[in-house]
Amino acid sequence: MTERPPAPSTEVPAATAETVEELIRHRLSTALGGWRGSIETALPTVAFIALWTWREDLRLAVYAALAVAVILALVRIAQRSSLQHVLAAVFATAIAAFFAMRSGRAEDAFLPGMLLSGAYLVGTVVSILVRWPVVGFLVGAGDPRASEDPFAWRRDRGMVAVCSRLTWVLVALYVVRLAIQVPLYLAGQVQALGVAKIVLGWPLWVAAISVMGWLLVRGRTPQQSPAPDS
């Protein structure tokens, strides 16, 4: 069967981007990952909730989550593909297991994630206030010259302003996570916490990225000459 030539890309090359928003769209698409890593992050939680719902055995639920995380890592190793996302899942699962086993309460498996969301919430707000918005670092990671000058984005006032607006979307994301998860944790609703963790993971990220995309499509901030750091 004759192979079809690849469809022409509709993405604006960084070199020809006329606005800050076009440049950010290009670099965010370079810096962000895909669906597989998100599924790998969610599967240990699915295993934990499934075993807990079935047997209400904390030790068995923890072992199932750890086993799934290890299997995912072995599959990655066998395929010789990146372990970035699955190692994050293994680490997060191990920390969650430690918290749950130490207290003997299944809901404590979700406590590290909530504490991390709280830390991220504070960090993103502070990053905006000091004009080093978190999204700017993602934009910088997508810059092919990042190894030479990782903070070049910081010298464009328009870039900083747009990245600050986008970082407020992340602030809202963490607020939503905590507003839903903390009451469930305090009420000891383990199954609901598991569902919330999954729904407020990748799906909420997709929603946040969609909002960012909408903001980027609407904006027309011209690129400026680099300004000295304040």
Rank of each mutant, 00 (worst) to 15 (best):
I128Q: 08
S147R: 15
Q79A: 15
S117C: 11
V75Y: 05
A96F: 01
G118W: 07
G118N: 10
A78K: 07
P112W: 02
A94H: 00
A78M: 14
L138P: 10
I128C: 15
E148A: 14
F91M: 14
P133A: 02
I128S: 13
A94S: 08
A97R: 01
A92Q: 03
G136K: 00
A96N: 01
V135T: 11
S81R: 03
S117P: 08
R80G: 06
R145W: 00
V75Q: 06
F99E: 02
W132D: 09
D143I: 05
Q79V: 02
Y120D: 07
A97M: 02
V139R: 01
G104Q: 07
S117A: 15
G113R: 00
F137Q: 02
G140K: 08
F137T: 11
I77T: 14
G113Y: 02
H85P: 06
S147G: 13
V90W: 01
G123V: 03
V134F: 11
A97C: 11
L115W: 15
P133L: 01
S103F: 05
E107N: 08
G140R: 06
M114F: 09
V125Q: 13
V122E: 07
A78Y: 08
F99N: 05
S81H: 04
F137D: 02
E148R: 14
V126H: 09
G140A: 11
A109M: 10
D149F: 09
I77R: 15
A109T: 03
G104P: 12
V126L: 10
E148F: 07
L115P: 10
V122T: 12
A88T: 09
I95K: 02
A146D: 03
Q84V: 02
R131N: 13
A92S: 11
S127M: 08
A94K: 00
A88N: 09
G118A: 12
G113E: 03
S127I: 12
V75T: 12
F99K: 03
V122C: 14
L116K: 01
G123I: 04
A96L: 05
M114K: 01
A97E: 07
Y120F: 15
R105N: 10
V126T: 09
A88I: 12
G123Q: 06
I128A: 12
G142Q: 07
H85D: 04
M114P: 04
A89M: 05
F91E: 12
A119T: 11
A97H: 05
Q84L: 13
